[in-house]
Every structure is written in structure tokens, then in C-alpha cells.
Design a protein around this nucleic acid. Structure first.
Lengths: 197, 197
DNA sequence: TTGTTTCTAGAACGAAATTCTAATTAACTT
DNA sequence: AAGTTAATTAGAATTTCGTTCTAGAAACAA
């Protein structure tokens, strides 16, 4: 297992990296920037993360894990297909608003993942998606949610709010909380099934 | 005005850059790669584009301009709100399929725009959006398209298909032509107005 | 203690972006 | 046509920045 000092050093590097990245983008920040902001040496940074990409990847995986956890916490409370679908949209909005810099980093995705990181990412996402479908399965079986090609659900439900949030993050649209009901409504309309019309 | 030889040299650099970027990503390609592929010198490249970022930005703007032009050509043929909305989705699909490398580059957005490029980009987009709303205005006035907050139309219509295409481009979903009708339907449902229900 | 592993430091290195100066080419005057 | 100017190209020189390397400190186990 990992020393306590190691955990906190890693955390401080990730936090420093996030603040540098938000300031100047990934390309725009140097190892020195991160290292100075975290108050550690170059050697320490490389010892823990291997490369600048490595830092970005770790931050990305960390952010996704946190987002997924928040989403699942919300979804597990849902008692109908409709409330689950609406919850995806509203949780997306509120998480993004509460973690704007992280969300901005996730959206910017100016990262080219190493094969190893791609693996971790796929593993993370497929476990998450699996759990999400588990939650939705009973509502789908009851006909409350429509039967559609597998890969269309996520885009249909989250696509619009994601696109909107991207605009908001780059300063081109007002806060998503003001329009979240419109998007929740649209999401539900897009996937509601025969027994819910 | 620009010399003919200049225009073609720029073009050859942009084409070379696109092929290098698709091959190895933006980070992964060096100035030398581009320069060799384009058959020009370092000096020439810097003379025309100022930096590697500058090349990426120019390519991005060029791609967006081409996409916008294709979309407007399609929209100008539409004779109803419904056909216009559906056309956004299907044109998005077909353009993306026909220009996969460009589309992949546009989606990867591992580019950090310089302030100047951000300006050009905003100018381009706002002229485009302005024209799009001009096309939709008569249908909106007739109540065929619903009245919604200004910034929600584009995400509601294009968000889902964009999200789907992103998955397709990264190899996680089958070709969009197979599902474009589902997304066209959803788009129209999301924005159709009182007189169209 | 003493050996062992993990972690930290920062100088040294090398690759790649960028700058700079000189040469070349095209366009325009007169 | 010769001369003048501006645009373009070339490639060597420089700089910046990511990464590697070696030595030493700190935590831990025996």
C-alpha cells in the first residue's frame, strides 16, 4: 500500500496541474509550472506520474471516477424510468456547476491517451455503463423506456445537455440550471416507451 | 491579395498537416513531419502560419468553414421546419462520413486557440448561426417550430447526433447512417412547435 | 542499529519548436 | 528591359522544455 505522504503529494500535484491547465491549457503549462505550483521537485513528479501526459491522464481518470460516482448516487435513488432519465440531466448540470474547472478539463480533452490509460479508461467506463444499464433494465422491461439500438441511449439522453454545457463553459450561453428542465423534458421524450405515452 | 503560389503552398501545408495529425495526433507530429510531407522548408511554414498551433488553428477554421458551407447548402433547400431540422441531422451524418479525417480532427479539438484565432472562430460561427436562424425564422413565426431560449436550439437538434458521431469516430459505435433516422426523429420532436403536433 | 525500499532533489541531456539572416523569386515601376 | 520593392523560401543557430539520471534522504522492516 501507499504511504500517506505519497497520497497527499500525488493529490497536491493533481490539484496544481488542474489549476495550471485551467489557466493555460495542457500544452500551455510546463512541467516547471506544475512542479512549482505543487511545491515539489521534477524528480518527485516523474516518480509518481512518469510524464506530463501521465499527470493529465491521472487527472482525467480521477475526474471521471468522481463524476461517475456522483451520477450513480443520484440514479440509485430513482424510482421510475422518467425520474432516472431526468436525473441524468439535472445531475449532469449540478455536478458541472459545482466542479466547473474539472468539467472544463474533461471537455477540453486535449489529451492523447497512452494505450495503458486507454485501457483504464475503457475499464472504468464499461463498469459504469454496465451499472447504469442495470439500473435502467427494469424500466425498459416494463416498457416505460423505449427499445432502441444500444448505442443511441446515451447520446439521446445526454447529448443535448452536454452540448449546451460545452457552450456555457466557453462563455457562449447562460448557466445550465436555467434551462435544465427543457433538456430533461427533451431527454425523456426521446427515450420514453409505449407504456409512458 | 495573395499570390497563386502562396495559396497552393498554404493548401499543401494544411493537407500535409491533416494527414500527419490523423496519423499521430497533434502532439505527436513535429514541425519536421509536416514540413517534409508538404515539401517545404521550416522558414516557409513559419512564414505562413507562425507556429505549429497556427497550422492547427488554420486547419480547424478551414474545416469549419467547409462544414458550415455544406450545411447551409442543404438547409437552403428545406421547405418546411420539419425538413430543415431533419436535414441538419442527416447532413451532419453524411458530411462526417464523407470527410472522416477532417471530422475526427474537428472532434479531437486538442487545440488551444490563440486569442486571435478565437476571434476568427467566433466571427465565423456567428455569421453562420445568424444565417441559420434566418432560414428558420419563417417556420418559427408560423408556430411550426417551438419558441425556446435562443441557446437551446442547436444543442437540442445537433447534440445527440454529435455525441453519437463522436462515439463512432472513436470506434465505439456502428456507422451513423444506420441510426440517423432515430436522431432526426428525436431532433424534430425536441423542437417542433404547437402547429406541428 | 542495519539493510531495503520508496521517495525527493536538481543538474545534465536531447529533441523539437522557434527565431534569424541571407538568398531567391515574383510583381510592379518607369 | 532594368531597377526597385516586397513576398517568399531556405536552413543554420538558438531556446525552450520534457525527460533521464545519479545521489541522497526518509520511512520501514529485521
Amino acid at each position: 500500500m501507499e504511504r500517506a505522504s505519497t497520497t497527499s503529494r500525488k493529490r497536491s500535484i493533481l490539484d496544481a496541474a488542474l489549476s495550471c491547465f485551467s489557466e493555460n491549457g495542457v500544452e500551455g503549462t510546463t512541467i516547471q509550472d506544475i512542479q512549482r505550483a505543487a511545491g515539489c521537485s521534477v524528480g518527485s513528479l516523474y516518480h509518481h506520474f512518469g510524464s506530463k501526459e501521465g499527470v493529465a491522464e491521472a487527472l482525467w481518470l480521477d475526474a471521471i471516477a468522481r463524476f461517475n460516482a456522483a451520477m450513480l448516487r443520484a440514479l440509485e435513488k430513482a424510482e421510475s424510468g422518467e425520474s432516472a432519465v431526468r436525473s441524468v440531466v439535472t445531475t449532469y448540470c449540478s455536478w458541472t456547476a459545482r466542479h466547473a474547472p474539472l468539467a472544463r478539463f474533461l471537455h477540453s480533452r486535449d489529451i492523447e491517451f497512452s494505450p495503458a490509460a486507454k485501457e483504464s479508461q475503457k475499464a472504468l467506463q464499461s463498469a459504469y455503463i454496465h451499472r447504469v444499464f442495470e439500473i435502467f433494465a427494469p424500466f425498459a422491461r416494463a416498457g416505460e423506456v423505449a427499445e432502441l439500438p444500444l448505442h443511441t441511449y446515451v447520446p439521446l439522453i445526454s447529448g443535448p445537455i452536454e452540448a449546451y454545457v460545452r457552450r456555457w463553459l466557453s462563455g457562449d450561453a447562460p448557466s445550465p440550471v436555467k434551462v435544465q428542465d427543457i433538456f430533461a423534458e427533451a431527454a425523456w421524450n426521446a427515450v420514453k416507451g409505449p407504456s409512458a405515452r
